[in-house]
Design a protein around this nucleic acid. Structure first.
Length: 620
RNA sequence: GCCAAAAUAGCUCAGGGGUAGAGCAGCUCACUCGUAAUGAGCAGGUCAAGGGUUCAAUUCCCUUUUUUGGCUCCA
C-alpha cells in the first residue's frame, strides 16, 4: 500500500495528528480577519489579493532571473497569505540573497510596467520556453482544448493562466516581504528533483502587511513549545528518544484535570472504561491487518519466546479481543468501551513538532459495538457528546467534515450507505456546518472529523468518528440477534479530544498559557506582604487546599512585588495578598491575573467565588 | 526520508584559530517589605557527538544526532 494510504488508514482509525498544520491554518484565519475588517465577501477579498500575490510571484521570478539568467522557472502560485515560486537554481540560496531579490523586486515594481496577456499557439509557446524544461513539461500537460496564455511584465514572460493585476503599479513595494527559502519537490513528488522555493507574503498595503506580521508574532507568543518551557509543563528529550513526551508536575496537573473530567463524563454518558496491554503478538496485528497496511508506521518488533511482539499503534484490536471473549447477544449491545490508551507510531523524523506531532501519544479512544438498529441513535449521541466535550474546553466554533466511500474499499456497499447517511443526519441534527470530502474516507469506513477554531482563528482537528467495516470481518466478530442468527455488529472508532498530548498543545495555544481556573495547574498563590505573616499564609494555604484548590503559599525571601511578578508570569489566576488587615479580619485581597483587584473580600466569599468559577469551567 | 538553517551555563543569548562571557534562574548572607524584579557575594560550561586540517579547534572542513522552517496550494 502506498504510504499515503497507510497514513489515511491510520488517521482514520484514530484521531491522528496529521491535520495539525498550524501555520497554514493561521494564515487562513488571518484572511478571515482581513475580510471582516474590510467588510468584503471572502471571495472578493481573496480574489483581489490572489491577483496581487500571483503577480508578485511573477515579479519575484523576474528578479531571480535577473540574478540567475540560467535559472529554470517552474510554478509560482498565490497561496493563503502570499505566494511562492519554485526555481531550479545554479546554486543554493542564502538569506542575504533574499535582500537582493527584494531590492530588485522593488525596482521592478517602481517601473510600473503593465501585465500583458497573450494567447499563443503551442508551437510559439514551445519556442518561447525552449530553454525552460519545466515550462515545456507544463505545456505538455495542458489539455489540447485549452488555450495557452502568456503573461509578460517588462522583460519577463511566464506561461500562466492568470489572472493578474493590470500593472505593477498596483503592487506596493512596502506591502510584501520575502519570508523564507525552502526545498520543495517538483510537483510535490519525492522522486522528483528538489527545487528551491521562495515564500513571500503580500498584501494590498503596508498596513495589512504589518497586521499580518503582528499576527505571526502573536502565533509565536502562543507557541506551546515556548510556553511549555516557561510554565514548566512538559519536555522532550532527544537523548532519551525523540517525539516522546515528559509531563512535568504542572503539566500533569492539567492532564489530571482533563482526564478526571473526561472519565466522569464518559461514565455519565454510558461508557465503560477498559485497560489493555501496550504490546501485542504479531498474530494480533496480522489479524487486524496492521502488519499488512501499516507496518511502516509501527515501531519494529521485539522478539521473545520465538514470537514477535509489537508496541501498539492503535487500541482497537485489544478492544476487539475483549469483545470476542464472550458470545455476545443483541441484548448486550451497544458496548461503549473507552480507554486513554497510549500508542506509539513511527513518525518520520522531519514530521515531529512539539506536542502536536509525536511518536508516543495517548488517544482518548473508544469503540462502539452496535447492532444495525442502534446505529443511528449511537452516532447522533456520540456526536452530541463530542460537541459537549469540546465546548466544555472553551471551543465554540466547530466545523464538521464528512468523508465518504473511496473507490477502493471493503465492506458491503449498503452498509457504507447506511453508515454515511447516519453520519450526515447526525451532523444536520446538531446544526453543524459541514463539508463533504467525497471519496475521502478510509478504505474501511466513512467518518466525521470535527475541527475547532482556536482563539486566533486557527483550525485544529480534534474529534473523529469513524466506521470500521474491516476489523469486524477480520476478527469475525458476531452477536446473536433476536432470530438466533449470528450477525456482524457495526464497529465505530471515536476520539473526542484526539490525542491528549496534542490536545494539550492546542489548549496551551488557545489560552496562550492562561488557562481557565478549572484547568490551571496552580489556581491560587498566597502571597504574604512580609515575613511576619508567613504563618498565617501557611494556615490559609492549608484551608484553601482542604477546599480542593490547587494552591501554594510563596514563602520565599523575595519581596512581595517579586512574588506577584512571579505568580503573574506563571499565569496563576488568583493571587491572594495577605497582611495585617486580612489576618485580623479573615479577609483576603485578591489580585486577578487580568490585573483586576478585589480587596477586602471575606475568605469565605473568595472561596465561593473561585469554586463557582471552577465548577462552571469559566475563564477568568 | 528530502532541502535549508541551527546546536555555547537550567533558561534567553553574546563571542570567537591561542582551551569562554552577560542577564535571568540556583546557592549563601543581609533586609520589618501592601500589588509586575531589594542588595551583595558564590557557584555553574568536554562550547551536541565523532573524525579531519593546524604548533594550537569551541571557532575552519567532513560525518552523525537532534532541533527549527519547508517539502499540499498547481501552467
Amino acid at each position: 500500500m502506498e504510504p499515503r494510504n497507510m497514513r489515511a488508514l491510520m488517521s482514520s482509525s484514530l484521531p491522528d495528528a496529521d491535520d495539525a498544520v498550524p501555520e497554514r491554518e493561521g494564515m487562513k484565519a488571518f484572511l478571515l480577519v482581513y475580510t471582516r475588517r474590510y467588510g468584503m465577501a471572502k471571495e472578493d477579498a481573496g480574489e483581489k489579493l490572489s491577483k496581487i500575490r500571483h503577480s508578485m510571484a511573477h515579479v519575484m521570478a523576474e528578479a531571480v532571473l535577473q540574478m540567475f539568467p540560467t535559472a529554470q522557472i517552474t510554478i509560482g502560485p498565490a497561496i493563503d497569505n502570499g505566494f511562492y515560486y519554485d526555481f531550479d537554481l545554479p546554486r543554493q540560496l542564502v538569506n542575504e540573497d533574499l535582500e537582493e531579490i527584494t531590492t530588485r523586486m522593488k525596482a521592478i515594481i517602481a517601473e510600473g510596467k503593465p501585465f500583458v496577456r497573450r494567447v499563443v499557439s503551442r508551437a510559439e509557446a514551445q519556442k518561447q520556453f525552449a530553454d525552460q524544461t519545466y515550462k515545456l513539461e507544463l505545456l505538455e500537460a495542458i489539455p489540447e482544448d485549452e488555450e495557452v496564455s502568456l503573461y509578460s511584465q517588462g522583460g519577463f514572460t511566464d506561461l500562466c493562466r492568470g489572472p493578474h493585476v493590470e500593472s505593477t503599479k498596483e503592487l506596493k513595494a512596502d506591502a510584501f516581504k520575502l519570508m523564507s527559502i525552502a526545498g520543495a519537490y517538483w510537483r510535490g513528488k519525492e522522486t522528483n528533483p528538489m527545487l528551491t522555493r521562495i515564500y513571500g507574503t503580500a498584501w494590498e498595503n503596508a498596513k495589512d502587511l504589518r497586521l499580518y506580521l503582528q499576527h505571526l508574532e502573536d502565533v509565536e507568543k502562543r507557541d506551546h513549545r515556548k510556553l511549555g518551557k516557561e510554565l514548566d509543563l512538559f519536555s522532550l528529550h532527544e537523548e532519551a528518544g525523540p517525539g516522546l513526551v515528559y509531563w512535568h508536575p504542572m503539566g500533569a496537573r492539567i492532564r489530571q484535570a482533563i482526564e478526571n473530567f473526561w472519565r466522569s463524563e464518559h461514565y455519565a454518558n454510558g461508557y465503560e472504561m477498559v485497560y489493555t496491554p501496550h504490546l501485542g503478538r504479531s498474530w494480533l496485528w496480522e489479524t487486524s491487518g496492521h502488519l499488512g497496511f501499516y507496518k511502516e508506521g509501527m515501531y519494529p518488533p521485539m522478539e521473545m519466546d520465538k514470537s514477535d511482539y509489537y508496541v501498539k499503534p492503535m487500541n482497537c484490536p485489544f478492544h476487539i479481543m475483549i469483545y470476542k471473549n464472550s458470545k455476545r447477544s443483541y441484548r448486550d449491545l451497544p458496548f461503549r468501551w473507552a480507554e486513554l490508551g497510549t500508542v506509539y507510531r513511527y513518525e518520520k523524523a522531519g514530521a515531529m513538532h512539539g506536542l502536536m506531532r509525536v511518536r508516543g501519544f495517548t488517544q482518548d479512544d473508544a469503540h462502539l459495538f452496535v447492532t444495525p438498529d442502534q446505529m443511528n441513535d449511537e452516532i447522533l449521541e456520540v456526536l452530541r457528546f463530542s460537541l459537549h466535550m469540546l465546548q466544555a474546553f472553551g471551543f465554540t466554533e466547530i466545523n464538521a467534515y464528512l468523508s465518504t466511500k473511496p473507490e477502493k474499499s471493503v465492506g458491503d456497499p449498503a452498509r457504507w450507505a447506511d453508515a454515511t447517511e447516519a453520519l450526515r443526519k447526525a451532523i444536520v441534527a446538531e446544526g453543524l456546518s459541514y463539508e463533504i470530502d467525497e471519496g475521502g474516507g478510509a478504505f474501511y469506513g466513512p467518518k466525521i472529523d470535527l475541527k475547532i477554531k482556536d482563539a486566533i482563528g486557527r483550525e485544529w482537528q480534534l474529534s473523529t468518528v469513524q466506521f470500521d467495516f474491516n476489523e469486524p470481518e477480520r476478527f469475525d466478530m458476531t452477536f446473536v440477534d433476536k432470530d438466533g442468527v449470528e450477525k456482524r455488529p457495526y464497529m465505530i472508532h471515536r476520539a473526542l479530544l484526539g490525542s491528549i498530548e496534542r490536545f494539550f498543545g492546542v489548549l496551551i495555544e488557545h489560552y496562550a498559557g492562561a488557562f481557565p481556573p478549572w484547568l490551571s495547574p496552580e489556581q491560587i498563590k498566597v502571597i504574604p506582604v512580609g515575613e511576619t505573616f508567613f504563618d498565617y499564609a501557611k494556615e490559609l494555604e492549608g484551608r484553601l487546599r482542604k477546599e480542593g484548590f490547587r494552591v501554594s503559599a510563596d514563602l520565599g525571601d523575595d519581596r512581595m512585588n517579586a512574588k506577584i511578578r512571579n505568580a503573574q508570569q506563571q499565569k496563576i489566576p488568583y493571587m491572594v495578598i495577605i497582611g495585617e488587615r486580612e489576618a485580623q479580619n479573615d479577609q483576603v485581597s485578591v489580585r486577578l491575573r487580568t490585573g483586576k483587584q478585589e480587596n477586602g473580600l471575606s475568605t469565605q466569599a473568595f472561596i465561593d467565588m473561585v469554586k463557582q468559577k471552577v465548577e462552571s469551567k469559566q475563564q477568568l
